[in-house]
Amino acid sequence: MGMREYILKRVILIIPMLMGISFIVFMLMYLMPGDAVDLMLALQPDTDPAYVAHIKSIYGLDQPWYIQYFYWLKQFATLNLGSSFLSGRDVSEEIGARVVNTLSYQLLAVVFSIAVAIPAGIVSAVKQYSKTDNLVMTAALLGVSFPIFFLGLMNIFLFALILGWLPSGGAHSTVFLGRDIPHDFSYYLDYLKHLALPTLTLGLASTAYNARLVRSSMLNVLREDYIMTARAKGLKERVVVYKHALRNAMLPVITVTGMQIALTLGGAPITETVFSWPGLGKYFVYAIQHRDYFVIVGITVVLGTLILVANVLIDISYKWLDPRVEF
């Protein structure tokens, strides 16, 4: 199968997958006790059931879940994700306001993690059992065993409170909040500063993992015969490692990175909570807590699409890295 057909096939496959995911999410959501209106009104004094029923009917919550799913699907066919029970705004608008914030630090964290993990892993593999290796691996072990929440707080204490280099949370400093703030260079610089800690925290967590992965993958590759061949050609060690070994060592790393995208996204709610970051992860948890059904499904669908697309990209890059792969 050619690359083009493959991509086309994968993209088309996304649609039934999204339908499957949304169906399951709908089912699960309605298994959770209480709906948005129950939670909104239950603790208000003097709520009578007729009123609750009335409000529910406004939102269509009086229908059985499969009917609601059907309505949702009908809407979704026109790329309409419905609107939030809580805020009343369109789900696409709500997601739009946050998705860039989530993708920004998520991508940076992946880039950071790879940028640090690859050299660290290589050095550690090439100088196996050396002092550098021990240092890198101990750091990685610590990184893997710290929960993100804890790591995040440590970073806040260190970089915001003790050193005072970076802001402790949020996406903008107070002076940049407001209606008439020009979106100039200093505005974005401020945003980048705020981006640093979430990126660092999430990045560190996966760096630790990736460095270990690169190291072991690299060690395996360095034992391969073709590395000996490359050396026997008289190539410099640098060429042997970075050309011949690295590309092969990247194959398992890439595979795992594909799975990691889902994992790092899983770290989003905690990271965003610790750093007051206005992203999708925190919003997702909030929506679940408040049973904001369309938001839950909407985020699932958007993130699902992103993960699926990322996996297609990874498959393609895999093919590009390893000519043996056939689609």
Binding site: L153, I156, G169, T273, V274, S276
Partner: peptide, 14 residues
Amino acid sequence: VLKLIPEREAARVA
């Protein structure tokens, strides 16, 4: 300005 900071420790640092 009402600023959202979900975590207690983060708010205290702020």
